[in-house]
C-alpha cells in the first residue's frame, strides 16, 4: 500500500470512528442532521461519478431514490420482508430499471439526454402514484411492527438508521475512491478529461457509460431505501421529489467541484451551511444556491474544490493520477 493510500484509508477510518460514536456526544437533532448530510454525501458522490466523470448529465436521479423508498415499503408491507432485506432488492430493481431506461435514453443526442432522464423519473412517479395498493397519490407508511423490527426503542432505531446512513456516506466515498484508482476508474478519468482521446486509447465509451449509469442508479436506490427507513413513510411527492433528490444534489456537486471526489464533501458542507443559516427565509436559500451554482459554472467550472486544488495544490483524496488534456 502506498503512502498516499495509507493516509486516505487512515483519514476515512478516523472520520468513520468519529461519526460512529456521535450518538454518545451529539443530540437527537444533530444526529438527524449528520445523518441527512451523510445521505446527501452519498447521493452527491454518486451523481458526481455519473455527470462529473462519465459525462452523463442526469436530472432524473430522483427516480431511483423514490424507487428505493417504494421497494422498502412494498417489500416490508406486502411481502413481509425485514427492512434490511429490501436493500439488495432495491439495488437489483433500480439497476434493471436503469438498464431499460439506458437502452432508450442513450439514443438521445447530447444535452437532450438530461431531459430524457427527467421524463423517465416523471413516468416512474406517475406509475407509483397510480397504484392504489401502494397508497396511490397519498402514499403509505411503514406499519408499527415493521418499524419495531428495526429496533425495539425509538432511540435505538434512530441510532441504527444513523449508523446505516454514516456507513452509506463513508462507504460510497471509499468505494468511489477505490473505483477511481482501479482500471475501469482509469477509463472514467480518461473519459472525464478528454472523451475524444479516451476513444483513441481504446476506452469503450458506451459500455462504461452504461455500467456507470446502471450502478449509480442501483446504489442511489439503496440510499433512497435507507432515507425512507428514517422517514418511515413514502408518498409519490416525497419519494420522487426533484427538489430534494436532484436539485439539491446537483447544486452540492457543482458548487463543491464537479469531477472531483472532494467536491461532494465540500459541496455538502456548503449546502447544509446555507440551508441551515437561511432556514428562516423560506426558499431563499435555493435562490442563493442557484445563483452561486450559475456563477461557479460560468467563472470557475470546477467549483470550490477546483479553486483550492489549483491555487493551493491540495488534494484530500489523491488519486495518484493527473491527466491533462
Amino acid at each position: 500500500m502506498s503512502n498516499t493510500t495509507l493516509r486516505v484509508v487512515l483519514g476515512l477510518t478516523v472520520a468513520a470512528l468519529i461519526l460512529a460514536t456521535a450518538p454518545l456526544w451529539a443530540g437527537r437533532a444533530d444526529l438527524r442532521l449528520i445523518g441527512e448530510m451523510m445521505s446527501y454525501l452519498a447521493l452527491a458522490v454518486l451523481w458526481n461519478l455519473l455527470a462529473g466523470y462519465a459525462g452523463l448529465m442526469s436530472v432524473g436521479q430522483h427516480a431511483f431514490v423514490g424507487l428505493g423508498g417504494y421497494v422498502l415499503v412494498i417489500g416490508t408491507v406486502s411481502m413481509g420482508l425485514p427492512p434490511l432485506a429490501t436493500l439488495p432488492i432495491a439495488f437489483v430493481v433500480a439497476g434493471l430499471a436503469a438498464a431499460a431506461f439506458a437502452l432508450l435514453l442513450f439514443r438521445l443526442v447530447g444535452a437532450y439526454f438530461a431531459i430524457g432522464t427527467w421524463v423517465a423519473a416523471e413516468s416512474v412517479a406517475l406509475v407509483f402514484a397510480g397504484v392504489p395498493a401502494w397508497g396511490g397519490g397519498a402514499g403509505i407508511s411503514l406499519p408499527a411492527d415493521v418499524v419495531r423490527s428495526i429496533a425495539e426503542t425509538r432511540e435505538m432505531r434512530e441510532f441504527v438508521v444513523y449508523w446505516l446512513l454514516c456507513g452509506l456516506g463513508i462507504g460510497t466515498l471509499s468505494a468511489a475512491y477505490t473505483l477511481i484508482r482501479s482500471k475501469p476508474g482509469l477509463a472514467l478519468m480518461a473519459l472525464r478529461d478528454n472523451p475524444t482521446a479516451a476513444v483513441s486509447v481504446g476506452v469503450n465509451i458506451s459500455r462504461i457509460r452504461f455500467w456507470t449509469y446502471v450502478m449509480v442508479a442501483a446504489l442511489t436506490s439503496v440510499v433512497g431505501a435507507i432515507i425512507f427507513l428514517q422517514k418511515l413513510r413514502v408518498s409519490p411527492q416525497a419519494a420522487f421529489s426533484l427538489q430534494d433528490w436532484t436539485v439539491a444534489v446537483i447544486f452540492i456537486v457543482v458548487i463543491g467541484g464537479i469531477g472531483r471526489l472532494e467536491g461532494a464533501i465540500v459541496g455538502t458542507a456548503v449546502y447544509f451551511l446555507l440551508r441551515e443559516t437561511l432556514s428562516g427565509y423560506g426558499v431563499f436559500y435555493l435562490i442563493v444556491l442557484g445563483v452561486v451554482a450559475i456563477l461557479v459554472v460560468s467563472f470557475s467550472g470546477r467549483g470550490i474544490w477546483g479553486l483550492v486544488e489549483r491555487h493551493l495544490g491540495w488534494s484530500l483524496l489523491p488519486t495518484g493520477r493527473r491527466m491533462s488534456a
Binding site: 448529465m57 444535452a111 436539485v247 447544486f251 431563499f284 435562490i287 445563483v291 451554482a293 459554472v297 460560468s298
Partner: peptide
Amino acid sequence: NLLPPILVTFGLAVVIENSLLM
C-alpha cells in the same frame, strides 16, 4: 463540454421558480 450550459440553465430554472414563489 455539454455540461456547463445545462448546469447554468438548470440553475436558472431553480432561481426563476423560487423567485416567482417568493
